[in-house]
Simulated scan of single mutants.
Amino acid sequence: MIFIHGFGSNGFGSKAQAMRSYCRQHEVRFLAPSLSHIPTLALQTLEELIEQLGALTPAPRLCLMGSSLGGFYAHILALKYDLPVVLINPSMHAGSSLRRALGRAVNYFDNSTYEWQESYLATLEQTEPAYPSPLNASQCWLLAQTADELLDYREAVEALPEARQTIEPGGDHGFVGFARYLDDIMSFFRQATAT
C-alpha cells in the first residue's frame, strides 16, 4: 500500500502514521514517501515507485491512498496503472484550489519554507484527468467530510459519480476520526485485489 500525502505535508502526517501503525500490526507492506513539493518530481517519484514495486511483486496488487493533493495524485495514478484507491478529502482540481498558496509556503514537517510557483499550477492543470472519473465502486472509495475548510467536498462527489462514497457531515480537511475506517479500508483493498 502506498499513502500519498497532501500539500505541504509529508510521509509522517497523522493519517500516514495511523495507517503505518495499522499495517505494521497486520503485516501489510506500507509506504508513505515524503514527496517533493514540485508536482512533476512528485509524480515521477510515485510512478517509479509503482513501476518498481509492481515489477518486484506482481501479486498482490498495489493499492493507493491519497489525501488532499495526494488524492489528486492518487486518482491520476489509479487511472494510469489500474489500481484500487481510497481518496480522503481529495483535491479534484488541484491547479485551481492551490492557486491561493502561490508564493511562500511552509512544509509542516520542519517548518521550512519553499516557493509555490505558477508553473506548478500549470503542471497540475495539465495532468488533471477528465471528469467524471470512470473509476467505479470496486476500484475507488471516496471519504469526504462536508465541513472541509479548504476544499468543497461536492467537487469530489461530482467528479467520482461511480465510486463508493462515504460523505460525513461536519469534520474538517484533515478528516476527523480517520482511524475509525482503517479496518474498512483494509477490507476494501482486500476485495479490490481479490479479482
Rank of each mutant, 00 (worst) to 15 (best):
P60F: 02
L62P: 02
L64W: 11
M65W: 07
M65L: 15
G66I: 10
S67M: 08
G70N: 03
G70L: 00
G71S: 02
F72W: 03
Y73F: 14
Y73G: 03
A74V: 01
I76T: 03
L77E: 05
L77R: 06
L79F: 00
L79W: 01
L79H: 03
K80F: 02
K80A: 00
D82V: 01
D82N: 07
P84D: 07
P84L: 05
V86G: 09
N89M: 08
P90S: 00
P90K: 03
P90N: 03
S91W: 12
S91C: 15
H93R: 14
A94V: 12
G95H: 12
R100E: 14
R100M: 10
A101I: 11
G103W: 07
R104T: 15
R104Y: 06
A105N: 11
N107T: 02
Y108Q: 14
D110I: 11
S112L: 05
Y114R: 01
Y114S: 00
Y114K: 06
E115S: 00
W116F: 15
W116S: 02
W116V: 08
W116Y: 11
E118S: 02
S119C: 04
S119K: 14
S119M: 05
L121R: 08
L121V: 10
A122S: 15
A122K: 14
L124M: 14
E125F: 12
E128R: 14
E128Y: 06
A130I: 12
A130L: 14
L135K: 02
N136A: 15
A137V: 02
Q139R: 15
L143T: 12
A144R: 00
A144L: 01
T146P: 02
A147Q: 09
D148E: 07
E149A: 03
L151G: 05
Y153A: 08
E155S: 08
E155R: 05
E155G: 00
A156Y: 00
E162D: 06
E162I: 04
A163L: 03
R164Q: 15
R164H: 15
T166I: 13
E168H: 07
P169N: 07
G171E: 04
H173N: 07
G174T: 09
V176S: 15
V176Q: 13
V176N: 13
G177K: 05
A179Y: 05
R180S: 14
R180K: 14
L182S: 14
L182Q: 09
D183K: 15
M186L: 13
S187Y: 09
S187P: 01
S187H: 13
F188K: 04
R190V: 12
Q191G: 08
Q191H: 12
